[in-house]
Design a protein around this nucleic acid. Structure first.
Length: 430
RNA sequence: GACCCUGUCGUCUAGCCUGGUCCAGGACAAGAGCUUUUCAAGCUCUCGACACGGGUUCAAAUCCCGUCAGGGUCACCA
C-alpha cells in the first residue's frame, strides 16, 4: 500500500510551492490507490501559529485534497525523545551541554558514501564526511526537522517521499538516521522548484504566493491545479487542458520534469479563462455573490438571481479572472455608470445629441423590446442617418457602460432595460 | 567557497532512456490581419530554441567528456 505525506510547517500560509508539492503527492497517492497523509510540522513553537494551520487546511480543501490521516508533530515529542534515547544507548549519538547547562542530543556522523535512488533524478551520491554531526534533540527539548521527519515517516509507514528539490541535501542526513534507527528506507522523489519571473525563488515580491490569494483574485481551483500540473509534467500529447481527474489516470512520477519552472501569470490567466468559459454559471454566481455584496451592488437576501445568471453567461467567456466580473459588469448594478475618461474622450467628445435622442425614441417605441428588434431599429437608424454602424455603436456603448469593451451592444441594451438605456442616452443630449 | 541539482523558442513544454521519421512539434505571451459591433473573447498568419566547445558515429537535441550559466543546500528554521 502506497502511503505518501504532505508535511507543511504552519509558519506561514500554504504557498504555490507547497500547493504544488501537495498536488503531486495527492496525484501519486490517487494514481496508486494509496493513502494521502497530512502532517503538520509544528515543532517550532515560536513561529508556528494556529491561524496558519487553519489557513493551510482551508487551502488544501479548496484545492480538493482530502487527507486520510492527520498528525501534529507537537503531539509526538515523546516519540522523538524515545528514539533519540535509543541512539544514545546504542552509542550512535552523544550529549552536548550548553554553557547554561542544557543538554542537546547529537548524532555522530560516520564517514561513508551514501547513494540515493531518486525516482525523478536517478542516482545521486553524497560523501558524508562533508556532513557535520546532526542535532537530534535541541537543548530546549524539541526535535530538529531532519530527526522528527525521519521518525515520523518511518512510524507512519510512508512509502514515498515526494518533496521539493531544496530537500535533496537533507536526504543523505535522513538516510543515515533511517539506518541508525533500523528503519527501512522509503522511496524518494524530488520535484523541481518553482521560480519567480525574476529567476529567483518565488516570493511576495514577484507576486502573490499564498494559494488563498489566488482564490481571492478569482482563480478557479481547477485552473490553478491544471497550471501547477503543467509546470513540471505533461501528458505527452500536446494537451494543455487536463483535469486532475484525468491526470490521476495518466500520471507517472517518472515523467515529472527535472528542470525548475518559472511561474507565469499570463498562462494561468489563459487557463483560468478556459475553465471559466465552461464553468457552471450557477457556481460562478455563488462565488460572485459575496463580492457583489461587498461592493453593495446587490443585497445577499434580496436580489434577482436569474438576472445575475444572465450577466454571468454574458461575461464568463471573456474573463481572465472571475473577480474581473465585478468591475466589468458594474454598470448593471450602479445607478449611473462610471465613465472611463479615456473612453469619454475618444467617443463622447463630439455632440451626438441628435443621434442619441433619435435612438432613444426608437427603442422607446419598440413594442417588442428584444435583442433582434433593438438591433433592427439601430441598423435602421444608422441607415437613415447615412453613417457607419460603428460610428454610433462605440459612443452608445460608452454612454451605457462607461467602457469601450464588453459584451455585444444589443445584448447590453436588452439586459439593461428600456428605461435605463434611454435615461443613460438622454444624459448626453444637450 | 564546498557539495548537490539543472540547462530545447521570452515563458511552460514534446522529443532525449531505445541516435536517423526534428533545417526540432504544441501552448502562453508578443506582432500582423480577419470578425458589415468593441474587447482582455474567437479565427488565421508571423516571429522565435536544441547554452558553448570537443569527442564517439555514416548520422547527435538525443551517447561521452569538459567549460560556462542558473538554481539549491551547507542552522539547536522547517
Amino acid at each position: 500500500m502506497v502511503r505518501v505525506r504532505f508535511a507543511p510547517s504552519p509558519t506561514g500560509n500554504l504557498h504555490i510551492g507547497g500547493g504544488r508539492t501537495a498536488l503531486f503527492n495527492w496525484l501519486f497517492s490517487q494514481s496508486q490507490k494509496g493513502k494521502f497523509i497530512l502532517r503538520i510540522e509544528d515543532t517550532d513553537k515560536e513561529r508556528s501559529k494556529k491561524e496558519f494551520v487553519d489557513e493551510i487546511l482551508y487551502s488544501l480543501k479548496w484545492l480538493g485534497f482530502n487527507w486520510d490521516e492527520l498528525y501534529y508533530q507537537s503531539q509526538r515529542f515523546d516519540r522523538y525523545r524515545m528514539h533519540a534515547d535509543k541512539l544514545l544507548k546504542a552509542g550512535l549519538a552523544y550529549v552536548e551541554k550548553s554553557p547554561e547547562g542544557k543538554e542537546a542530543i547529537i548524532y555522530k556522523v560516520l564517514p561513508q558514501k551514501i547513494k540515493v535512488q531518486d525516482l525523478i533524478r536517478g542516482q545521486i551520491e553524497f560523501d558524508s564526511s562533508l556532513i557535520k554531526d546532526q542535532v537530534l534533540i535541541k537543548s530546549d527539548g524539541t526535535p530538529t526537522y531532519n530527526f522528527a521527519c525521519v521518525v515520523d515517516d518511518a512510524e507512519m509507514n510512508i512509502t514515498h517521499i515526494i518533496r521539493g528539490d531544496d530537500h535533496i541535501s537533507n536526504t543523505p542526513k535522513q538516510i543515515m538516521l533511517y539506518e541508525a534507527l533500523g528503519f527501512a528506507l522509503p522511496n524518494f522523489a524530488h520535484l523541481p522548484l518553482i521560480m519567480g519571473v525574476d529567476g529567483g525563488r518565488l516570493s511576495k515580491r514577484t507576486g502573490a504566493t499564498a494559494i488563498s490569494d489566488y482564490r481571492k483574485m478569482g482563480y478557479l481551483s481547477e485552473a490553478l491545479l491544471n497550471y501547477l500540473l503543467l509546470l513540471s509534467w505533461a501528458p505527452g500529447d500536446n494537451r494543455e487542458l487536463i483535469s486532475v481527474k484525468e491526470a490521476v489516470k495518466l500520471f507517472d512520477i517518472k515523467n515529472v520534469n527535472k528542470t525548475s519552472a518559472t511561474f507565469d501569470l499570463k498562462k494561468l490567466d489563459w487557463i483560468n479563462n478556459q475553465y471559466l468559459k465552461s464553468a457552471d454559471p450557477e457556481k460562478l454566481a455563488d462565488e460572485l455573490i459575496p463580492l457583489l455584496e461587498a461592493k453593495h451592488y446587490i443585497n445577499r437576501d434580496n436580489f434577482d438571481r436569474p438576472q445575475l445568471l444572465v450577466l454571468v453567461k454574458l461575461f464568463q467567456a471573456r474573463l481572465p479572472r472571475l473577480n474581473d466580473f465585478v468591475d466589468w459588469a458594474d454598470f448593471f448594478f450602479l445607478e449611473e455608470p462610471a465613465i472611463d475618461p479615456a473612453a469619454k474622450e475618444k467617443y463622447l467628445s463630439q455632440d451626438l445629441s441628435k443621434e442619441f435622442s433619435l435612438f432613444a425614441q426608437k427603442i422607446d417605441s419598440l413594442d417588442c423590446f428584444d435583442i433582434t428588434n433593438i438591433e433592427t431599429s439601430f441598423r435602421g437608424l444608422v441607415a437613415e442617418l447615412g453613417i457607419e454602424a460603428k460610428k454610433l455603436i462605440h459612443p452608445v456603448r460608452v454612454a451605457l457602460t462607461g467602457k469601450t469593451i464588453g459584451p455585444g451592444l444589443f445584448e447590453v441594451i436588452y439586459y439593461l432595460g428600456k428605461e435605463r438605456s434611454k435615461r443613460r442616452l438622454l444624459k448626453w443630449v444637450k
